[in-house]
Design a protein around this nucleic acid. Structure first.
Lengths: 193, 193
DNA sequence: GGCAATCCATACTCAAGCGTATGGTCATCG
DNA sequence: CGATGACCATACGCTTGAGTATGGATTGCC
């Protein structure tokens, strides 16, 4: 399970490599995903890697697949559990804002949209999330077209925020300023109940 | 005579390389900035390059500097020429939306925020633009703090849009849909006059 | 026309990183 | 307890791309 920090002497599986790959991607981007670097990180050598995967691209593919499957469910599931649709959107905003950790991989993949393996994954994920937002805005009272555009706008704001304040270290806001920003977003983007 | 096959046989300057570099960056990203590739593109060899620049990084630095200086003025100057502050913001939105060409470099640099040379440039540019937006929102009637947060939100939406619809090919909207989206943005983000 | 200075080509070296070949070790099962 | 298969180390080949060395070509200038 935890093979990232300790030079443990346990045997590795394909999943170990995929997790480590995602870890590395989150930290240093897709471009830094090199097999020898990963091996060093896991305390083994290339010999191990090429037993589990045919190529470097195969690892990337598997890691992306893994991320797409297991990395998305929590937030959406939590939000969908909230009964009152009017509370959902503000809650979604606040939660996403305060759990930026799981978004590290997403931010990294955003910077790798030139890679052919990354594009379809990101397209699917972004599509699903935008649809989720669209439905939420409709439940909040917006007509269909308005809801779709508002969802696009909201999701774009999310993505842009990741880039500007996450990977770029722009004017690192204080906690207070950040909370104020989130509340401002809520007031501006969510139709008044 | 052979102008049809060969791209001119004129001598090159450092600026030629910088411009070509920006072109390449816009097309294929910072990672694709290789000196031999650039040389091929300019119809010369490495020998030329290393006369003009000491290293690859030096070219990047020079190109970024050039971009920061010459690539920004037009839009802001045009907008500042509009007398009525209330017309400025909608106009800004519409112009930026329809002249996405000059934003190709910016979008590419956004994906290279892990590179140490890119970060400070992007920090400065984003900072300046956000300040410009903040001032505009204040003139549009928002109180200081509101104006700042609205500027952040707006700029984040811009950046996110670039990523999602520019580099990623998300649901390629039709022209009509796109215009509708822009107008929706205007209605949502700009305080009513 | 000749002489610098500028610009470019050719031919290298060197390091990084992917992938291959092959043999070693350890657990597990019969 | 030995054999099989899973897992890993070592050593190599190959390609790409940065940077260097050096000489040839071209231009500006006197």
């Amino acid at each position: 399970m935890n093979a990232s920090t300790k030079p443990e002497r346990t045997r590795l599986s394909a999943e170990s490599w995929e997790d480590a790959a995602l870890e590395l991607i989150a930290e240093q981007g897709v471009g830094a995903l090199a097999v020898e670097a990963l091996a060093r990180r896991l305390g083994v050598t290339k010999g191990s890697f090429y037993w589990h995967f045919r190529t470097r691209e195969a690892l990337l593919q598997a890691a992306l697949e893994r991320w797409e499957q297991y990395g998305e469910r929590e937030v959406i599931a939590q939000i969908e559990a909230i009964p009152d649709p009017r509370v959902r959107l503000p809650e979604l905003f606040r939660r996403v804002a305060h759990e930026l950790q799981p978004h590290r991989v997403y931010a990294a993949l955003l910077k790798a949209l030139d890679h052919p393996l990354v594009v379809p994954v990101m397209a699917r994920v972004s599509q699903r999330r935008t649809e989720f937002l669209t439905a939420a805005f409709r439940e909040a009272g917006l007509p269909p077209k308005e809801a779709l555009n508002r969802a696009r706008l909201t999701y774009a704001a999310y993505v842009g925020f990741l880039q500007l304040n996450f990977t770029l270290g722009l004017p690192r806001m204080s906690h207070e300023d950040f909370d104020a920003y989130v509340e401002h977003m809520i007031r501006t983007l969510i139709p008044a109940a």
